[in-house]
Amino acid sequence: MTLEGQRLVCSYGPTRALGGVDIAAGGGEIVAVVGPNGAGKTTLLRALSGERRPDQGEVLLDGSPVSGADPGWRGRVGLVSHRAGLYRKLTVAENLNFFAALHGVPKARDAVGPALETIGAATLANTRVEALSRGQSQRVALARSLLHDPDILFLDEPFTGLDPAAAAALESTLRARRAAGSVIVLVTHDLRRGLGLADRVVVLRRGHKVHDGETGGASAADLLRYFTVGDPS
C-alpha cells in the first residue's frame, strides 16, 4: 500500500499554504513531516486525509485517486489533531461509542473498552471530557482514531501535552500500527521524537518541500538547517 500526494497546491485566499508538494508514504512506514510554523504541515495533512480538497494536484492510494468525498476512503483514515475533537459534555465512553457507531464498528459499545485499555485510559470511561487534562484528552483522541482499525493514520502534533508515560504509550501504539502495515504520517515540532520514531522525514518550509530522506543518521541539528537555509521556491 502506498499513499501519495502529487503536486499538492492549497491556498487560503491570497496565501499559498502549499506550493506543489510531492510526498509518498508506504505501508509499514512512518513519515514525519516537520518544519517551522507556517510551513504548511497541517495543510498537507488535511489535503492527504481528504479533509481539504487541494486546489491542484491529487492524492493517490496505490495509484488510484482518493477523495474526502468518498465515504469508503474516510472509513480507512484515522486522524489525531492537535485539538482533541471530542464533545466536552459527553463522557469518554459516550464520545467513543458515538464515533465507533458512525464508523459502523460492529458492537460499537464493546469496542470502546479495549480501545481505552490500549492507550491506558480504561479508568476514564465514565468521565466527562470537560474534566480531563489535555494529555488525557489527547489519549482519548488517539483511542478514537483507532476504533475502526484504520490502515492510514494522520497525526498532527500528537505528543503535545502528553506526559512521558503517555508519550511512550503513543510511540508504542504507533510502532505496533507500523508493524501491522499501516501508513502513518506524523506532523510534529518535536524533531528528536520525530527522528526517533519515523522511517523517513519530510521538511517543509513556506509551503515547499526542502528535504525528503530516511531518518537513519540524521540529527535534529541537520534538520534544523533546512528550516532556515536556502530559498525553497
Binding site: 479533509e51 465515504p71 489533531s81 485539538r83 475533537g85 478514537r144
Partner: peptide, 18 residues
C-alpha cells in the same frame, strides 16, 4: 456551538457519514 468547541465537527465529517 458544541461541534466547534473542541473541533469535534471535523472528526465527525471524517467518519463515513454522508
Amino acid at each position: 456551538d458544541a461541534e466547534e468547541e473542541e473541533g469535534a465537527f471535523r472528526h465527525l465529517l471524517l467518519t463515513p457519514v454522508s
